[in-house]
Every structure is written in C-alpha cells, then in structure tokens.
Amino acid sequence: MFVTVLFALLFYVATAIFLVGLGMRIARYARTPAPLKIPTTPAPTTRGGVVVRMGTEVLLFNSLFKANKWIWLFGFMFHVALALVLLRHLRYFLDPVPTWVVLIQPFGMYAAFAMVIGLAGLWARRVFVERIRYISSPSDHLMLALLLGIALTGLGMTYLWHTDISAVKLFFTGLMRFELNPLPTQPLLLLHLFLVASLMVIFPFSKLLHAPGVFFSPTRNQVDNPREKRHVANVKWMIAVEKPAASADQ
C-alpha cells in the first residue's frame, strides 16, 4: 500500500509539474514578441507553405537530414519509435482500448528495440565524435541514460520479467478518477515508472523544451512576405516615437 500511495503521489506531482511547467513555458514563448522577420530563406511565402515546412521539420527532420545523415538516422529512429511506444502505452490508460491502439501494439513492441538502437547510436556519437563530445555537458549524457533506462526497463518487462499489467492499468485508470488501486511492486516496473516520472519533472526545465520550441522558432514558422505585409510587434523600440536621425549630430 505504501508503494501505491507513493507512486500515486509521484505521478500526481509529476503530471502537475509537467503540465503547469510546460504550459507556462509555452505561454512565455507565445507571449514574447518576434519583432522582426527572420525566416531562414528560401522560405514559404504563404501560411500554407509554412505549415508544410513545419510539417517536414517535425515529422521528417528535414533540416537535420540536410545536416548529417548519421544524426538524422539515429535521431529519427529514436523519435518515431518513441512516438509508437507512447501510442502503444495508451492501452494502459484508456478503457475500452480504441481499435487503432490495438492495431499498433505489435509495431509498438518492436519499436522499443529501434528506440534503444537510436539512443545507443546517439550516445555513441556523443562519446566518440570529438566535436559532439566537446559540446556535451553531464546533463546531455544523463538525459540519454534516463531515456535508455526507460526503454530498457520497459523491454525487460515485455520480454523477461513480466508484470501484472492489468493491475498496472487499474492503478493508472484509477488515478485518473482519483481512486487508489494497488500497484504491483515488481522492482523493474517501479524503476520504469520512477524514470518516467523523472522525465516528466525534468521536461519543462531542460533541453526537452525543443519539442514545443520548434513550433515557436521564428526562422521556421514565419512567412516570407515582409514587403507585401508590414510586420509589426509591440516592443518598446519599435513603437517609441522616433527622433529624426539628424538629431544625433551633436
């Protein structure tokens, strides 16, 4: 029971920090003015074009592909696998389980391997490529360790030490209704859940902010139409009544 209460609290707190922290960050990005037009050109000249550009960035990592095929390969592999794995996990939170979630289960299971390979590839580059080693701080390694830990503990439960997954589901669906159902105390499960909660807590304060950040990146989300449409923003230097340039003479 102690474990159940502890993890219930942990997940309530982690979810709160995740949602509030991320929400505040996104609000901050949205509120901060982008005073000037700075799309990296060639850039789309219409809103629709920007949606396509953002789509290729977020779904295909277009710029990264141009930059470096290895980083793209490992990064893309990891992110697609992570998405599949996350979607697969919806079955532990939704009742009844939607058909499409059932259908992706087998892909989600194998995706975990792709996730591990992707993470291992990225970590290997971080360790062995001199340039990337130079720019890495301890937190960059820890982040990979954390993600790898989550993936490996998950894989462990799928293939080696099974846990009572229906009890886990009862625990989480219960949490969503503010009811406490007992959580199995299998160590691998507890470790998996602890790492996931840690990730949620870290998210709004770390480089994981790249996920919302990319959508707010002016070099990618601005329309290239400064001559056609006057871009204005509410910043002091722009709206201040200007002195004529000649007054700077003295």
């Binding site: 930059a67 480089k207 790249h210 990146s217 002091k236």
Partner: peptide, 22 residues
C-alpha cells in the same frame, strides 16, 4: 529574452545534437 522570441526559444531548444558543428 522578454522582447525577442527567437532568443528565448533558441536558448531553451538546443539539444546538442551536433548537426551544426561542422
């Protein structure tokens, strides 16, 4: 940081992937 969205987003978003290093 409060008046330039680009700066705020760029400060937060880098994951040190290494794509720009060369």
């Amino acid at each position: 940081l409060k008046t330039n969205r680009a700066l705020q987003v760029f400060m937060d978003s880098c994951v040190k992937c290494g794509a720009c290093t060369d």
